[in-house]
Amino acid sequence: MVQTISVAESRELDDKTINKIGIPSMVLMERAGLKIYEDMLNNPALDLGKVLILAGTGNNGGDGLVVARLLCTHGYDVSIVTVGNPDHASEDHVNQQKICDYYQIPKAFMSDDFNKYTTLVDGLFGSGLSRNVGGDFATVIDKANASTANIHAIDIPSGLNGDTGEAMGTAIEATSTSTIAYAKAGMVKPGADKYTGKLFIDDIGIYKGNSFDNE
């Protein structure tokens, strides 16, 4: 049986791991990005011929930027579109964007034709979304869902409520999802698989107790 946590527990575990145990958030982001990259390589449903990262300005988008760099440095055709106000970007996101700039990873635009990509990576929101999706984010989510590309979501499909498993206005309908540490409770509720697709659970060193099996 899949272990699950609530959105509140997810925040608490992140805080414990970073601030009490002392593993820097950038280290966790690097671990997450590597796991997500490996999940994508090991998923035959994804064609990685031409990949677009949909990156919000928070740490979920930062995870997406790590994936972009790993794809780029391993010879894949990858571009990044940033959605949201870069002036409000998290510190880790800013640092990851600087690394992507070093590698000269191409930047795309929301107006681009998403059908020219084979895989979209959803790094718009994490699990803590608290209100219905609107504005540019809703536009990008609907455009992604309408495209011919398959979608791989990071942590939780953007727009899906991590506790209830219901779409918050609109939500990414992913082919597959890499969820970090534990599945969120809403992701295993009836009907949520329409949004999550195939579920990968990535151990990056965030645990309820002192190990992955500790309840």
Rank of each mutant, 00 (worst) to 15 (best):
V121M: 07
A108V: 08
N115E: 12
F114D: 04
V81M: 06
S90D: 10
Q97N: 10
Q96P: 01
F109H: 14
S111K: 13
Y103W: 15
T119P: 03
R69L: 03
L71F: 04
T73L: 07
S79K: 10
K116S: 15
N95L: 09
Y117Q: 10
K107V: 10
H88A: 13
N115T: 13
N95Y: 02
H93Q: 09
N85S: 12
E91Q: 12
H93S: 05
V121G: 01
A89D: 04
S111A: 15
G75T: 02
T82I: 14
Y102C: 12
L71K: 01
E91D: 15
D101A: 13
I99Q: 12
K98P: 04
D113I: 09
V78L: 00
H74I: 00
N115Q: 11
T82N: 00
A89G: 08
A89N: 06
R69K: 09
N85V: 06
H93E: 05
G75V: 01
L120Y: 03
C100R: 06
P86G: 05
H93V: 03
L70F: 05
Y102P: 01
Y76A: 02
V94T: 13
V81A: 06
T118S: 15
V78K: 01
P86T: 13
P86N: 05
F109C: 11
D87Q: 13
H74W: 00
